[in-house]
Design a binder for these strands. Structure first.
Lengths: 184, 184
DNA sequence: TTGCTAAACGGAGAGTGTCTCCGTATCGTG
DNA sequence: CACGATACGGAGACACTCTCCGTTTAGCAA
């Protein structure tokens, strides 16, 4: 890639991160191009679709997912608290931008999505947590990480849309957790 | 209201119902106007926002909500099955159109929404079901119908976006139900 | 350094959707 | 039947997406 191309590409990603944080994932791409000081054509050549752009700016997010998951897995406490901690981490990770929960949760179910590779990192993280809990016999049979992603993703989507705060979200996550844990 | 105005208004609602069913709630309103044989101005005079239009075509939906709820409440069976039946009914009711779950669940949390009055019918229905279960001592303390709407609305939104079928949705609803029911 | 070519740029503009404005047409009452 | 209130409709302003293609530039080879 030519030096000027790389410069422009990087600048677009950087600007897009700010714009999406401000306005959500449906912000105008022409605005991104304008703020980045490039033409619309340049933006669309680098990133044919909106999702391609989102995919690019998620690189740093991937690192964050792994790091947060490690922290959760290292947690010493009851199974229920660990699961809840994971749920809260999950919600946080997908709620960094307005519209993120819906975007990511949808993408996880769609093999065609350009941001699928990033979603797989997240579902992999969910697998790690659920495997650990399953190994301890903490989960009901039939419960799997796909369900976790759907249920917690659904809660996060509602919370995002309705702008619920953490205090309103917690009881919802508790219900989901209690529905998944083996009966005492 | 003048006779011609009423004629046009009714026709717009009728056409909008078809168009939204075909294309989802974000279909072009100009298309609705065109198919209804009226100008865009006429449509926007009757329905200043998209939500106002959606609100109008939900009238018949309201009847359906009440009817379905009655059927659930009359159900003879275990508390768990009744709750699950209600969840499935709820999902069905808000999933009649593509994008419905997200639309309705968001509106339920927003006092400003033009379709709020219709959503209140739904939350009222949820209250009836939850009250009946609570009276039997079937629910954990702290569980309320707002949580039900959020949780089940979240599941429905994910199912809608990812086009999950009923078989994939059921286990999710079971988790939620088990998380809400009093421990055996 | 210079010349050349592939690579990249950028912005005008086509296509689509939202929503408004206002000249025109129609209703329905006195 | 006449006339004001009411409603109509579609042109057009504005916003966004995405493409096309003439112009510019990076970077290499001589």
């Amino acid at each position: 890639m030519r030096a000027d191309a790389k410069r422009n590409r990087d600048r677009i990603v950087e600007v897009a991160r700010d714009v999406f944080r401000e306005q959500g994932y449906d912000a105008s791409l022409d605005l991104v191009a304008k703020r980045a000081g490039v033409g619309a054509g340049t933006l669309y050549r680098h990133f044919p679709t909106r999702d391609d752009l989102i995919d690019a700016l998620m690189q740093s997010w991937v690192d964050r997912v792994t790091e947060s998951t490690d922290k959760v897995l290292a947690f010493e406490g009851s199974d229920r608290d660990l699961l809840l901690r994971w749920f809260e981490t999950y919600v946080e990770l997908i709620s960094l931008h307005k519209g993120g929960p819906a975007k990511i949760t949808t993408a996880m179910g769609n093999p065609e999505s350009p941001i699928r590779s990033k979603c797989q990192v997240l579902s992999g993280a969910a697998d790690r947590v659920m495997d650990q809990l399953a190994a301890r016999g903490a989960l009901r049979p039939g419960v799997d990480s796909v369900q976790v992603c759907r249920l917690v993703g659904g809660v996060a989507a509602v919370a995002d849309q309705s702008e619920l705060d953490a205090d309103a979200v917690r009881p919802l996550l508790e219900v989901v957790a209690d529905g998944m844990l083996a009966r005492a």
